[in-house]
Each structure stands twice: as C-alpha cells, then as structure tokens.
Amino acid sequence: AEIMKKTDFDKVASEYTKIGTISTTGEMSPLDAREDLIKKADEKGADVVVLTSGQTENKIHGTADIYKKK
C-alpha cells in the first residue's frame, strides 16, 4: 500500500472504496510508525493509506483510513 496525502487522495477518491481504519501506537520513530501503518494496510489488502491523525509526545499515535481500488 502507498501513503497518500489527503489533498492528493481527494483528486482520485472516486477510484477507491474505503475498507477500514488502522492505527499505530508506541515508542517508535515517525518512520517506524509509517512503516507499521503500511504493513497493517498491506495485511488488509489495501492499495492506499490516507493519514487522518498523528500525534507525538512521549509516544507516537497515528490513524489512517485504508482504501482498495474499485
């Protein structure tokens, strides 16, 4: 799966169907969080990951919607 910015995804959204939401939390780098989200998306058969939230304090927390091409 590839990560797309919401603004970029909005241009092609009609080509995809939302298949779920994924999240990651833990003591990790932003890059590790990104890789974890991609891994989870791949496991669910998603083609595209669109980040919906991200937070960093002591731990990273990120959520994303996942989509499959129609």
Rank of each mutant, 00 (worst) to 15 (best):
A1D: 01
A1T: 05
A1H: 02
A1K: 02
A1R: 02
E2A: 14
E2V: 15
E2I: 15
E2S: 13
E2M: 15
E2Q: 15
I3K: 01
I3Q: 01
I3V: 09
M4E: 02
M4K: 03
M4T: 02
K5C: 15
K5R: 12
K6P: 08
K6F: 07
K6E: 08
K6Y: 05
T7D: 13
T7S: 14
D8I: 04
F9K: 00
D10W: 08
D10A: 09
D10S: 07
K11S: 06
K11P: 06
K11W: 05
K11L: 09
K11I: 08
V12D: 03
V12R: 05
V12G: 01
A13G: 04
A13D: 02
A13P: 01
A13Y: 06
S14H: 15
S14R: 09
S14M: 09
E15A: 10
E15V: 05
E15H: 11
E15M: 14
Y16M: 00
Y16P: 00
Y16D: 00
T17N: 08
T17L: 11
K18V: 03
K18D: 00
K18N: 05
K18F: 15
K18S: 05
I19W: 04
I19S: 02
G20D: 03
G20H: 02
G20T: 03
I22R: 02
S23K: 10
S23R: 11
S23M: 12
S23N: 08
T25M: 10
T25V: 11
T25L: 09
G26H: 13
G26A: 10
G26M: 12
E27I: 12
E27V: 12
E27D: 12
E27Q: 12
E27K: 12
E27F: 15
E27T: 12
M28S: 06
M28W: 05
M28K: 08
M28V: 07
M28F: 08
S29W: 10
P30T: 12
P30H: 08
L31R: 13
L31D: 14
L31V: 10
L31G: 10
L31M: 11
L31S: 14
D32S: 08
A33W: 14
A33V: 09
R34E: 09
R34I: 15
R34H: 07
R34Y: 13
R34L: 15
R34F: 12
E35G: 06
D36K: 06
D36L: 12
D36V: 09
D36S: 09
D36T: 08
L37D: 00
L37Y: 04
L37P: 00
L37T: 02
I38S: 03
K39C: 07
K40I: 09
K40A: 06
K40Y: 05
K40Q: 14
A41V: 01
A41I: 01
D42F: 12
D42W: 13
D42I: 15
E43L: 12
E43N: 06
E43Q: 10
E43R: 08
K44L: 15
K44D: 03
K44Y: 13
K44A: 15
G45L: 04
G45D: 05
G45M: 06
G45T: 04
A46F: 01
A46V: 02
D47K: 03
D47C: 09
D47Q: 06
D47S: 06
D47L: 04
V48R: 03
V48P: 00
V48M: 04
V49M: 09
V49W: 00
V49H: 01
V50I: 08
V50L: 04
V50F: 02
L51Y: 08
L51F: 09
T52E: 08
S53Q: 11
S53T: 10
S53H: 13
S53W: 14
S53D: 12
S53L: 14
G54F: 15
G54Q: 10
G54V: 12
G54P: 14
G54E: 15
Q55P: 11
Q55Y: 15
Q55I: 14
Q55F: 15
Q55H: 11
Q55D: 14
T56H: 12
T56V: 10
T56Q: 09
E57Y: 07
E57P: 12
E57C: 12
E57D: 11
E57R: 07
N58T: 11
N58H: 12
K59I: 13
K59V: 12
K59N: 13
I60V: 12
I60A: 12
I60G: 12
H61G: 12
H61W: 15
G62N: 12
G62R: 15
G62H: 15
G62W: 15
T63Q: 10
T63V: 08
A64R: 03
A64T: 01
A64G: 04
A64M: 06
D65M: 04
D65N: 05
D65S: 05
I66L: 11
I66Y: 02
I66D: 00
I66H: 00
Y67G: 00
Y67V: 01
Y67L: 01
Y67A: 01
Y67R: 00
K68C: 05
K68V: 10
K68P: 01
K68A: 05
K69C: 08
K69L: 07
K69H: 10
K70P: 02
